[in-house]
Design a protein around this nucleic acid. Structure first.
Lengths: 288, 288
DNA sequence: CCATCTTTGTGCACACGTTCACAAACGCAT
DNA sequence: ATGCGTTTGTGAACGTGTGCACAAAGATGG
């Protein structure tokens, strides 16, 4: 999972066997509902009246038993011997996800990624409405992106209150993320989607989900390495490295420098990054 | 986790108790390694020599027991009573993730998001090198993005073979994603990061991870709804809807239409989407 | 050299998620 | 009506992930 909520996984109410009925849908299931919804919407547009769990599961890329169990948490929609009524399921899932209501959203940080998100069709088609685009750079203010004017950060609090925004999207450089987050929360936002490679700290009751491109790529690299290297390498540490036990730090440092060299060489085309003082990760996708 | 691999979670080798030593790191741990690496890199730049599991866990946003267990899968780095040697750990994690080698990557679909990714500093700083930017639109070919020339899709196979690219990033509209994916795989790519809202089908041995903005927002909306609605609503279905049992499809259809209306009203500002025939989800972030 | 203090590494129990497999429910044909 | 084929809904087994709590290991000071 490339994300996590800030709240520690919902404390077991009081001792009762959670998930009594309707309430308490497992997180893993919630995360898959949008997938089902997408597949169902596609079927709906092709005017398909019903689907079996098998068909729908294939379309959504999951296993059919899992899908049936997921749906069972929502209730007993579906008819044995027939399948699920497409329109009805679309409605039920939409309602469960809260997509039957209007969700105004602000996007903070209008760099490349902010632009991309502003243009994202998937927002509007799911009940999300971009209430405002915000950026700290005064030069951007006044310009338009995706038909919406870019407004200055100064207006943040006013916009959030006036439009009743409860969801904020952060696409700023990592250095500004926490500060922006704090302002969003102070102004009343209770859900944040964070694209900056930073760990945000938020008060109780505020949800944070994060999307991190770099992490996804690194996970791919891990599996890729396994595929190519299989068993002849990566089983024992390279000879040059030794544990930094009892004051052998110099050795460790040397090893670390070797890494830096290797990476520097690899990235030679892109930039001179080995000696640039970036904070943990080079800025977000946003250059501004 | 906003993603999933195509392979069914690695078959238990032969019956042996997986995770014997060094080999077989749990997926959940692998997904956190990049987090630790980022926190460690930040410490390294501040020239901090050692960290305790407690400090590092806080910086990475996880619990310290989990962090220690994660590290124990890599081996017994760390010194009791002291903590972990920062440089040494950076090296070990980098090696485990495969970041000590060069990973050429191609980005297919140079719209807004493709641009954003091309400019992403996090790539180069982690051993990833953008080998080429590709787009099907001939008008884009020749232009440059992030200092790199945009090349036409025709060159895809040649580039992948010449540069030994094994990782591909798809940022095309959803309609083109599967086709692009097939070409990438045929040309030798074995890991794919998919930003298009589509389920990709790939042959055995190819890993797919997906990043989906729309899904993350929908998950936030779900929790947001729970927060505001608490217990007075959403417990039982609205009166207007009834199960589509024994031929009562008209009722379900009416309910579905109600949803469409609600969404149409919500998204009135953005576009007339209720009657546009998009395929399951409106195109990716990429307009091209 | 011993006592004390700190911090790791991990056994264990529990919670969560996934998958199997099957009874119950339904449509349909006879 | 009755029986047959189909598909859902779910109990139960299993595997994975999480967190507690503590022994073992090293550092440090006397």
């Amino acid at each position: 999972m490339a994300s996590g909520r800030s709240t520690p996984a919902s404390p077991p109410a009081g001792g009762a066997p959670r998930r009594t009925r309707g309430r308490g849908i497992p997180d893993a299931t919630v995360a898959r509902l949008p997938l089902y919804l997408r597949a169902l919407t596609a079927l709906s547009e092709r005017s398909v009246p019903t689907v079996s769990s098998e068909e729908l599961a294939t379309a959504a890329g999951v296993n059919s038993a899992k899908l049936r169990k997921d749906f069972s948490y929502l209730g007993s929609y579906g008819t044995r011997g027939v399948g699920y009524d497409v329109e009805y399921l679309v409605y039920q899932i939409s309602r469960e996800l809260g997509l039957t209501q209007d969700w105004p959203v602000v996007i903070v940080g209008i760099g490349n990624l902010g632009h991309a998100l502003a243009n994202y069709g998937g927002f509007a088609s799911r009940g999300f409405r971009v209430a405002a685009l915000l950026d700290a750079d005064p030069a951007l203010a006044g310009q338009t992106a995706a038909g919406l004017p870019v407004r200055h950060m100064d207006e943040l609090e006013e916009i959030i209150r006036a439009e009743h925004v409860s969801i904020g999207v952060i696409t700023t450089p990592p250095g500004a993320a926490q500060q922006v987050c704090d302002r969003l929360v102070a102004a009343g936002v209770t859900s944040i989607l964070n694209f900056a490679p930073t760990v945000l700290s938020v008060p109780e009751g505020v949800d944070v989900r994060k999307v991190d491109l770099s992490i996804e790529l690194q996970i791919l690299a891990f599996h890729e390495q396994r595929k190519s290297g299989e068993d002849h390498l990566a089983d024992e540490p390279p000879a040059v490295v030794s544990r930094p036990g009892a004051g052998a730090k110099a050795v460790a440092a040397a090893a670390a420098r070797a890494v830096t060299r290797a990476r520097g060489k690899a990235a030679a085309t892109a930039a001179t990054e080995a000696d640039r003082g970036d904070d943990g990760d080079v800025s977000a996708v946003v250059p501004a």
